[in-house]
Computed example of a mutant assay.
Amino acid sequence: MSDTALHTRTRRKGTWLGLVAWLAGIVFFLPIAWMALTSFHSETDAATNPPSWLAPLTLDGYREFFGAGGGASPWPSLINSAVASVVSTLCVLLLALPAAYALSIRPVKKWTDVLFFFLSTKMLPVVAGLLPLYLFARNTGMLDNIWLLVILYTSMNLPIAVWMMQSFLAEVPVAVIEAAQIDGAKLPTVLSRIIAPIAMPGIAATALICFIFSWNELLFARVLTSVVAETAPVFLTSFITSQGLFLAKVCAASLVISLPVLAAGFAAQDKLVQGLSLGAVK
């Protein structure tokens, strides 16, 4: 086969792969676009079947979500979700970085068994641990406490964070670390000034995934909180009542609650792709 024919075949293959990627992206984007469009419709237009594409647009769903109609304000729930997600993510990073350092740059014996143990903790069904955690929270007076969610989210995300960061830190040149240690740098200095800047794409990818997992968590927040520590996903379920499903209001609430995750993903998309391709998929 000539070089010209091979080049043409490669271009055609790339074109088809590009079209498939665009189609997959459109398929995944359509539900979000539909949710956004429905959020700007009135409840009457949102409930029509078939859907009313050209219905008048309105902000009533967003006004009701933010309590303009006398309903509950979403701000306490949004703040609770932000506190639980951000604080637990910071705790996960502070704990996962030294653990990943020990498993990659200064590997312990049978480090693969350690990693498998970390991952095996994610295999336990969440429902199986719900009753013991509820009894523990009740007996310790931590029901409806935002710090209980911080502890739970930290423990839930720590195994996957250690597993991901171990593969990221394995790419850090050992010679750089040894040079810093020869100059007298202690372990905290090595972690904060040597390893963290080099592995920043992997750390950013890990942080984003932990933040998304914490922000979207519903089961524990639903059972272990009620009013004071209610999170945004739990607040969203309150729109489904015995009176019916208020579709436009639910879509407006879903879009607003999804914005922090979408914004974080968009802001860190370059580091996310770079980090995931660096070591997590190897």
Results as ranks from 00 to 15, higher is better:
residue 27 V to I: 13
residue 177 I to F: 01
residue 245 L to K: 10
residue 76 P to G: 04
residue 198 I to M: 11
residue 153 Y to D: 00
residue 43 E to Y: 10
residue 17 L to A: 15
residue 151 I to C: 10
residue 124 L to M: 06
residue 203 I to Q: 07
residue 83 V to A: 06
residue 228 V to Q: 15
residue 1 M to S: 08
residue 38 T to R: 08
residue 188 P to K: 10
residue 216 N to F: 02
residue 111 W to V: 08
residue 46 A to V: 00
residue 98 P to K: 08
residue 160 I to A: 08
residue 125 P to K: 03
residue 105 I to E: 02
residue 32 I to A: 03
residue 231 T to G: 06
residue 98 P to L: 05
residue 193 R to Q: 09
residue 100 A to Q: 05
residue 129 G to M: 06
residue 265 G to T: 11
residue 172 V to R: 07
residue 130 L to N: 04
residue 183 D to Y: 04
residue 80 N to P: 02
residue 193 R to G: 05
residue 99 A to S: 14
residue 251 C to D: 03
residue 44 T to A: 15
residue 92 V to N: 03
residue 260 P to W: 07
residue 234 V to I: 09
residue 161 A to E: 03
residue 19 L to M: 09
residue 61 G to W: 03
residue 60 D to L: 13
residue 77 S to I: 00
residue 184 G to I: 09
residue 174 V to G: 10
residue 218 L to D: 02
residue 32 I to T: 09
residue 28 F to Q: 14
residue 41 H to W: 14
residue 216 N to W: 04
residue 8 T to D: 13
residue 189 T to M: 07
residue 182 I to H: 00
residue 268 A to R: 01
residue 79 I to N: 09
residue 231 T to H: 09
residue 228 V to C: 00
residue 48 T to C: 04
residue 253 A to M: 05
residue 19 L to C: 12
residue 242 S to W: 14
residue 256 V to I: 13
residue 167 S to W: 02
residue 220 F to E: 04
residue 33 A to H: 07
residue 197 P to F: 01
residue 101 Y to G: 10
residue 58 T to I: 08
residue 84 A to Y: 02
residue 41 H to D: 04
residue 151 I to R: 11
residue 174 V to T: 14
residue 16 W to G: 10
residue 209 I to Y: 11
residue 42 S to W: 09
residue 122 K to M: 15
residue 213 F to W: 11
residue 80 N to W: 02
residue 152 L to T: 00
residue 250 V to Q: 13
residue 76 P to K: 06
residue 94 L to Y: 06
residue 220 F to Q: 12
residue 214 S to G: 04
residue 130 L to F: 07
residue 102 A to F: 07
residue 56 P to M: 12
residue 241 T to D: 14
residue 250 V to N: 12
residue 60 D to M: 12
residue 260 P to A: 05
residue 79 I to R: 15
residue 232 A to H: 07
residue 23 L to D: 06
residue 235 F to R: 11
residue 230 E to C: 06
